[in-house]
């Protein structure tokens, strides 16, 4: 049972990691916790679902469509809720509150547009199961795990080696200096938010496929987990998001398997509170990064 539960934990954790990557990307560049990321994820899931069921698209084009939709939402959010704040000097809490506003707005919009009932992808896409020595793992989960690892590596490479990645890191370091050095920071910020949101939208489709339930409030639940991972892994740290996600997934599953299942939802935040006391910069955050103190 231990191995099966470990697999359950890793598969759950990989979805957390996938979501946390989007949070991390935005935080890394803008120093903003994007509370609306969960809702963009939810919209992505719905758009993918509609493309797959109403327009009979293949699951891959639906995934692409969801990513495009996520990017569009990200652009709108940046334009309407983040850029106006950057122009005036406001406290660091303003974007947090503003994105909470976006999240509430998107959630209730989704309730209006898609209705409150949970929907799922047609069963042809249903999780195919592989059995290896009595252990069961579903195909979608392997894909999710692969994609999140792939993304982690790709993002790290991209940020470290490419021109655009370098300008993103420059912007993250210091917007004014990057501006002076000729980086179009406006463009970099828009691109980052769009990229993170596209990842969120895509994650929505994958998680929707894996868990068979797409509904308007899934954004909050998943968003909270992503948020927890963001803090666990160290704000803005890509490897941290990956490891933090896996850890949280395994911890949650083990709390059910060997502990009391009713405390499962407290695991994430219990972890955070503990961690913030012991190591506020997160598991992977470096000391120089602006810690919590």
């Amino acid at each position: 049972m231990f191995l099966q539960q470990l697999i359950n934990g890793i598969t759950l954790g990989s979805t957390y990691a996938l979501i946390a990557l989007g949070y991390t990307l935005i935080f890394g560049v803008l120093n903003i916790v994007n509370m609306a990321h969960g809702e963009i994820f939810m919209f992505g899931a719905f758009i993918g679902l509609i493309l797959a069921t109403k327009f009979n698209m293949s699951i891959f084009s639906a995934l692409l469509g969801a990513m495009v939709a996520g990017a569009v939402l990200g652009y709108l959010m940046e334009r309407l809720a983040l850029r106006p704040l950057r122009r005036r000097k406001v406290s660091e809490l303003a974007p947090l509150i503003s994105t909470i506003g976006v999240s509430i707005f998107l959630e209730s919009l989704a309730l209006r547009l898609f209705g409150p009932q949970a929907q799922s992808f047609p069963s042809i896409y249903a999780a195919q199961l592989f059995e290896v020595g009595g252990l069961k793992i579903s195909a979608v989960q392997i894909i999710i795990l692969a994609i999140s690892f792939g993304l982690m590596v790709a993002l790290r490479f991209w940020l470290a080696k490419t021109r655009l990645g370098k300008s993103i890191r420059a912007t993250a370091e210091n917007i004014e200096t990057a501006n002076l050095l000729g980086v179009d920071t406006q463009k970099v910020i828009v691109l980052t938010v769009m990229l993170a949101s596209a990842l969120g939208g895509g994650a929505g489709v994958l998680v929707g496929l894996a868990f068979n339930a797409i509904e308007p409030t899934m954004g909050i639940t998943m968003g909270f987990k992503g948020l927890a991972v963001l803090i666990l892994g160290g704000l803005g740290n890509i490897t941290g998001a990956m490891v933090g996600g896996l850890l949280l997934g395994i911890a949650e599953i083990f709390s059910v398997a060997y502990g009391v299942s009713s405390y499962r939802d407290a695991v994430a935040f219990g972890f955070i509170i503990l961690l913030l006391f012991l190591r506020p910069q997160g598991i992977f955050g470096s000391k120089e990064q602006q810690g919590g103190r």
């Binding site: 506003g101 707005f105 209730s108 919009l109």
Partner: peptide
């Protein structure tokens, strides 16, 4: 209502923090 609440948060932050 919830949509209006969300919009209030965004608009207040943008125009009258």
């Amino acid at each position: 209502r919830e949509m209006i609440y969300g919009a209030i948060l965004v608009l207040m932050m943008a125009f009258r923090p």
